[in-house]
Design a protein around this nucleic acid. Structure first.
Length: 489
RNA sequence: GCGGCUAUAGCUCAAUGGUAGAGCACCGGGUUGUGGUCCCGGCUACACGGGUUCAAUUCCCGUUAGUCGCCCCA
C-alpha cells in the first residue's frame, strides 16, 4: 500500500501531537457534535502542543531489532505463502516453537565451542534462577520437541517446518539482525540420502518460486570419527605452513581448524588447493551415502557445486552439508548465503532421545531472502500491494452515520475497502482514494441519504452513476469484475 | 568483538564559527458536493555528552546509532 502511517512515534514531540489528534477525531463518536465542542477541542490541542519538551529523549528500537513496516509486508506475505505451500506439498507439519529454551539445549545441541553458543546467545536468568536463552536456531528446539512428544511413535521420518524468529547477539549488517526470521524444515527419523536430496530440491524450489537463482554448494563432512582424523591431518598440514598464515587463521587453526577452510586470505586459498580433502577421509558408508545424495540430485536435475571446503559452524552436522547462495547480488559485492543445512544424525541421541535417530534439516534466512527478492525485482508490484477495491466517501453527519452501516455491508461481501471517515471534505477523501489507487469511489452525501441512493465513481474515467443503495454490493462487484477482465485483455 | 565511512525535518538532500533552507510527504485552505495538475498557508531537524571559542549545527574528543568490511552466520 502506498500510504504510511501518519504518526511515527520517534520523538516526544510527535507522541504528544499524535495523541492530541486522536482525541480530536475520536470526539464525535462520544459526544453529540456541536460546533461549540469542536471549537473547544481545537483550542485544547493548540494549547497543549507547546508544552512538549523538545529535549525529552525518545526511545528507539534495540540495536539489530527491526520494525517491519506495512509497505514491506507484501514481501513477507508472499514468502510466507510460498514457504507454506511448499511445506504442505512435501508433507511437512507446522510446528510453533517456544521463543526461549533452557540454555543447555543449545550448549549441548549446537556445541559449547561454537560462536553461536559461545558469544552470540541472549541468555539470562529468570526470577526462578532458570538459565534460559532466546533461541539462536531452530533445529535443536525442533529435535527437543520430537523427543519430548514421543514423535518416534509416528511414522518415520517426521517432517516439521517452522517460520519463526531467532536471536543472535551479532553486529548488525546487511541482511543480518539480532532478531531474525528463518524458515526451517526438519526431517527426523531416517538416514536415507534421498531425504537429503529432496530437502535440497525443496529449497531450490522455494527460491525458484520467488524468482531467485541460487547456486547450491554441497559437501559431506562425514561422521565425527572420520572428521577427527581429518582435522588432525588438516591441522598438521596448515601448521607446516604456519609462516604463511595470518593471525586470524592461526587462531582458527588452534580453535576450530575446519574454519580455516573458508578463510579469504589469498595465501590460505592457495594452500587449500593442496590441503587434505575431507572426501578422502569418508569411510565407505559415508562415501556411499554422499554418492547417493549426488545421484538423487542428478535424477532431480538439480545443479550443485561440490565444495570440499564447505564446513558449517554448528557442531551437530554430520555427512551432508549444503548452502544456498546468490553468487553476485550486485556487481563486486560478496555473495549472500540465503540458507543452508545438513544432516545431524547424532543430535537426537545427544539431546537425550533414542540412539540412532538420524535427521536432516534446512533453514532459510528470511531477511536475506527479502534482500535478494528486492534485488531481483522478481515479485510483481501487484502482488506486493494491498489492493483497495473501492473507497468509501461520506459527506455530512447523516451520511457518516449511515455510511458506517453501508461500509459494514460492503465489507461483509468480501470487498477490500478504503475509507477516510475522519475526514470531512469530499476533496480530501477523493485525494486519499487516489493515493490508495482505488479504482472506484462510493460517494454518500446528504442528498443520497434522503433518496436512498449512492454515487459510484470510476476513478480513472471520472464517470459516475447513481445507484440504489440496496444494490451497491452486486453492482460494485460486477464493475470490479468488468475492470479486471478488461485489464486482462 | 575489531576496522573504514556517516549522523541536519517522516524521507532525500543543502547552507553556515553568529542556532538553518529546499523538494517530496503530512495537515489545512483555495465553493461545508468531486481526486490525479495548480496556488496559498501550516507542522516538523542540527543524535547525545564533553572540550576549544566571546560564540559550535559547523572544529576536536568521547558515547550512541546507522552503514560497509572482518569475525561468524541465515
Amino acid at each position: 500500500m502506498p500510504t504510511k502511517p501518519s504518526t511515527t512515534v520517534k520523538s516526544g514531540a510527535s507522541l504528544v501531537k499524535s495523541s492530541a489528534s486522536t482525541d480530536k477525531s475520536g470526539a464525535p463518536l462520544v459526544v453529540k457534535t456541536t460546533t461549540a465542542s469542536v471549537a473547544e477541542l481545537a483550542k485544547d490541542t493548540s494549547q497543549s502542543a507547546p508544552l512538549t519538551d523538545k529535549k525529552s529523549k525518545s526511545i528507539t528500537s534495540l540495536r539489530g531489532f527491526k520494525d517491519v513496516l506495512p509497505d514491506e509486508q507484501g514481501y513477507w506475505d508472499k514468502i510466507e505463502s510460498v514457504v507454506k505451500s511448499v511445506a504442505s506439498a512435501y508433507g511437512f507439519g507446522k510446528i510453533r516453537l517456544p521463543i526461549a529454551e533452557a540454555t543447555p539445549l543449545f550448549e549441548r545441541g549446537v556445541g559449547k565451542e561454537t560462536d553461536i553458543v559461545g558469544k552470540e546467545m541472549f541468555t539470562f536468568l529468570d526470577q526462578g534462577n532458570t538459565r534460559m536463552t532466546l533461541r539462536p536456531e531452530g533445529t535443536a528446539p525442533a529435535v527437543r520437541a520430537y523427543i519430548e512428544h514421543g514423535m518416534l511413535n509416528q511414522p518415520q521420518p517426521v517432517k516439521l517446518w517452522y517460520l519463526e524468529q531467532f536471536f543472535r547477539h551479532e553486529r548488525p549488517q546487511a541482511g543480518r539482525y539480532r532478531q531474525f526470521w528463518q524458515a526451517g524444515f526438519e526431517v527426523i527419523g531416517s538416514n536415507d540420502p534421498v531425504l537429503d536430496a529432496q530437502l535440497i530440491v525443496l529449497g531450490v524450489g522455494i527460491f525458484k518460486q520467488l524468482g531467485i537463482e541460487v547456486s547450491t554448494q554441497l559437501n559431506s563432512i562425514g561422521m565425527p570419527a572420520e572428521r577427527r582424523q581429518y582435522i588432525t591431518d588438516l591441522t598438521k598440514y596448515f601448521k607446516s605452513h604456519s609462516k604463511k598464515l595470518g593471525e586470524l587463521d592461526l587462531k582458527r587453526l588452534a580453535k576450530n581448524p575446519l574454519r580455516i577452510l573458508d578463510s579469504k586470505e589469498p595465501a590460505v586459498v592457495e594452500l587449500k588447493k593442496d590441503a587434505p580433502n575431507i572426501i578422502s577421509y569418508l569411510d565407505p558408508e559415508s562415501k556411499a551415502h554422499f554418492m547417493k545424495v549426488i545421484e538423487y540430485l542428478d535424477a532431480a536435475e538439480i545443479q550443485y557445486n561440490l565444495d570440499s571446503s564447505l564446513v558449517r559452524g554448528l557442531d551437530y552436522y554430520t555427512r551432508t552439508v549444503f548452502e544456498f547462495m546468490v553468487p553476485n547480488p550486485i556487481e563486486g559485492e560478496s555473495p549472500i548465503t540465503l540458507g543452508g543445512g545438513g544432516r545431524y544424525d547424532g543430535l537426537v541421541e545427544l539431546l537425550g532421545g533414542r540412539a540412532n535417530t538420524p535427521g536432516v534439516g534446512l533453514a532459510i534466512g528470511i531477511e536475506r531472502l527479502i534482500l535478494a527478492v528486492k534485488q531481483a525485482k522478481s515479485i510483481p508490484a501487484s502482488e506486493l500491494e494491498q489492493p483497495v477495491d473501492v473507497f468509501f466517501c461520506q459527506l455530512g453527519e447523516a451520511a457518516r452515520r449511515q455510511g458506517l452501516k453501508i461500509f459494514e455491508k460492503l465489507r461483509a461481501s468480501g470487498l477490500n475497502l478504503g475509507e477516510a471517515f475522519s475526514k470531512g471534505s469530499l476533496k480530501a477523501q477523493l485525494e486519499t482514494a487516489d493515493k490508495f489507487k482505488a479504482p472506484f469511489a462510493l460517494i454518500l452525501g446528504q442528498k443520497e441519504v434522503l433518496d436512498g441512493t449512492i454515487i459510484l465513481r470510476d476513478m480513472d474515467a471520472g464517470a459516475q452513476e447513481i445507484l440504489d443503495v440496496e444494490k451497491i454490493q452486486s453492482v460494485v462487484i460486477k464493475r470490479l469484475h468488468d475492470l479486471k477482465t478488461k485489464s486482462a485483455k
